[in-house]
């Protein structure tokens, strides 16, 4: 007795063309081979383009092996991560201090009730009133009331002024405290290395490449109103160790004469770098307007 499933399979097999199974096997193997090949080093994959990172050269000293300029990169080089530890300490020390400043300021309302005190002052008034009855015939009750009110106002104003002065004095004292505290604060990254964000070397300063890039960029003037399309050009520039341009060569011109002319001007202005290089160097420079034309 053959099971109905097997029967169905046999029926299907009768429909298959001869050699179908082999073909199916080959197909499966090929499908398996495809991802293996894809992930093999035979087919290098294009790196995913990362968003641009803007680097600012704060120190223009050219070095061969720039060290990392980021604080987080420091522990990688110097394993005794002793310095980073104290870093957090000053931070909390600084932060909580400004906070208590506010609670100090809260007491402000307390002196405020003080001006309310003048209310009981009227108690003293009856004392005054007693001597006043003598000139009663001269001063009417209405006049008395106005006088009293006026006195109250003067007292209140005086109290207000006193409070204000006290408040100002407190603020000044707090400011002085804060200033004194801030002068004691030390930067948590004082020991952070100076160098390139992506530096891995052992010298403080900016890499020669970054320096040359910035120097040539500063010599290049071109207006966005001159631009048509997305011009791109490639230039090879050879510099001696003294920073003198030995020769240059356009590998690819943009085809936009205004753009190419502006590059020629930039190259002419970059004949002499403002600092020598660690060694004679060759630069393959790609000029384009990506960052300028992306702006609205």
């Amino acid at each position: 007795m053959v099971s109905p499933r097997k029967q169905r399979w046999q029926q299907l097999q009768s429909v298959f063309e001869p050699g179908f199974k082999q073909m199916l096997l080959i197909s499966v193997l090929l499908h398996l081979l495809l991802p293996i090949l894809y992930y093999s080093p035979l087919f290098p994959k294009r790196a995913v383009e990362k968003p641009p990172v803007y680097k600012v050269n704060l120190v223009n000293k050219i070095v061969k092996n720039p060290q990392a300029g980021r604080p987080e990169a420091a522990p990688v080089k110097k394993k005794p991560v002793v310095k980073p530890k104290p870093k957090p300490k000053p931070k909390p020390a600084v932060k909580p201090k400004p906070i208590p400043v506010k609670p100090k300021a809260i007491p402000k309302p307390k002196p405020k009730p003080a001006p309310v005190k003048p209310k009981p002052v009227p108690k003293a008034e009856p004392v005054k009133k007693k001597p006043q009855p003598k000139p009663k015939p001269a001063v009417s009750k209405a006049q008395e009331n106005t006088l009293q009110k006026r006195l109250e106002q003067i007292r209140a104003n005086k109290q207000k002024q006193a409070n204000e002065e006290a408040r100002k004095a407190r603020i000044a004292a707090l400011k002085a405290d804060a200033l004194a505290e801030s002068s004691n604060i030390k930067s948590p990254i004082t020991d952070a290395p100076v160098g390139m964000a992506d530096g891995k070397g052992d010298e403080a300063g900016v890499s020669a490449i970054a320096h040359v890039q910035e120097f040539i960029q500063q010599q290049w003037s071109f207006s966005k109103y001159q631009a048509t399309g997305n011009p791109e050009a490639e230039v090879k520039m050879f510099y001696s160790a003294e920073g003198t341009l030995l020769h240059f060569k356009f590998i690819k011109k943009s085809g936009n004469s205004a753009f190419d002319e502006s590059l020629l001007r930039a190259i002419a202005k970059s004949r002499q770098l403002n600092q020598p290089l660690p060694e004679s160097m060759e630069f393959h420079i790609f000029f384009n307007l990506k960052d300028m034309l992306d702006r609205p």
């Binding site: 020669a208 500063q218 071109f222 060759e282 630069f283 393959h284 420079i285 384009n288």
Partner: peptide
């Protein structure tokens, strides 16, 4: 050394 300059310094 490969350098990309994607905007002029003076516009």
């Amino acid at each position: 050394a490969r350098i990309e300059i994607s905007a002029p310094g003076v516009q």
